[in-house]
Design a protein around this nucleic acid. Structure first.
Lengths: 218, 218
DNA sequence: TGCAACCTTTACCAAACGGTCAAAAATTCT
DNA sequence: AGAATTTTTGACCGTTTGGTAAAGGTTGCA
């Protein structure tokens, strides 16, 4: 899924031989962590290298020693993201019980939204702007989705699931779960700041379970 | 809902007396149209005045004669947006048939996503970045949502709807419908470019109807 | 200890950015 | 027509931005 790894980093012997020094490994992660923070809040164009550098506790030229461009940081973040992001979909098991499988898929997606909201927003930003940096990856996504859509269709045909358009089912699951990460500001405003964090996600999980289960049981 | 109208525009006598010339009215609209285009694709920070000016067929200083800052354009767009955006929710009628009301609400929201995708993305961008420009408006939203949530709760208690958390129901409706506008790039990639536009929304409407109706019927 | 590789900093650059200003051009009003 | 007003323009400004060059400091290893 990840794009052909072009090793990013300093033009040094260690880098060229792929063997990274301790400092390189540490700073590399440190920078990506800061970059994720900034990109997910500001979007690609809105983020500045200075912001990321400051958030990472480095000077700008120092940061640019590890990542030669802003794009380089963004690209590596997106690459990493996609791998973990599609994991739950990969796990959808043709042999399992349909309703239980979908329930568990929803749960996993919701957990991702809870535990990795920055990644979710990073992705949302990218798609919102028309996915300018991930054309290639979206094709891989299509292949995976088409495959899993067939699984759903199979379950429907076997009478184990109400008949429905599998692609739109996926859209509904993605949107409802990611909503809690991407539109967090709105969710918090509407729910009020009472009953934070923990209970919120439990309520969401209960609601989505009910909605999809009753909506899908034959 | 709209914020107290501070009339934006040229510092001219006509403007001060609120009476706008023909040219002022025309250019004003022309600029907002272009600004919507650019803001919805690039986000606030990503958009540049030059881009908007070019898209509107004006020089930058000329544009700035009508809107004195970038914020001014964005603010008026957001203000207009919110009015039409919440219309469908206002229309949710306590006296109507619960299932029919919700069905019609979903349909309206989906039509908005189809007919005004740029507005949807403008809003999505704003919320994604943490709603920095619309704190005030979100409070009004909360009040409206709370009110309509009570309507839903009433229907549930009367046994006309399956018991569920009304707020999360709204989240689910918002996210699933707006998904088609906001994540259009992903939707197109997954569905392939075949079977465009028209059929797409019909399929979505059918799916969402089924999902929510069966998920909500008592 | 010395030296080669690696890391960090200071100073800098060109382009892009949001916005201003004064004056010219066009329009409207009487 | 001519004055008054509105609209448009070109030249400009200070700041921010992504990124570079080169020199100084640090580390690891023979």
């Amino acid at each position: 899924m990840a794009r052909t790894e072009t090793v990013e980093g300093p033009r040094s012997r260690a880098a060229k031989t792929q063997r990274r020094t301790r400092i390189q490994r540490e700073k590399h992660e440190q920078i990506l962590e800061a970059a994720l923070d900034v990109f997910s809040r500001q979007g690609f164009r809105g983020a500045t290298i200075d912001q990321i550098a400051e958030s990472a506790g480095l000077s700008k030229p120092n940061l640019l020693y590890y990542f030669r461009t802003k794009e380089a940081m963004h690209r590596e973040l997106i690459d990493r993201l996609l791998d973990t992001w599609l994991d739950p979909l990969h796990a959808l098991n043709k042999e399992g019980d349909p309703v239980a499988e979908i329930k568990s898929y929803i749960r996993r997606k919701l957990e991702l939204a809870r535990d990795y909201p920055r990644e979710s927003r990073l992705f949302a930003n990218e798609i919102l702007q028309g996915a300018p940096h991930i054309g290639e990856e979206l094709e891989d996504l299509k292949a995976l989705v088409d495959e899993k859509a067939e699984v759903i269709r199979g379950w429907s045909k076997a009478g184990k699931l109400r008949k429905c358009d599998p692609h739109h089912l996926f859209f509904a699951i993605w949107s409802t779960t990611q909503h809690y990460a991407d539109f967090d500001a709105q969710v918090r405003a509407v729910l009020g700041d009472v009953g934070q964090g923990e209970g919120r996600f439990e309520d969401a999980a209960r609601f989505l379970d009910q909605l999809f289960i009753h909506g899908l049981k034959p």
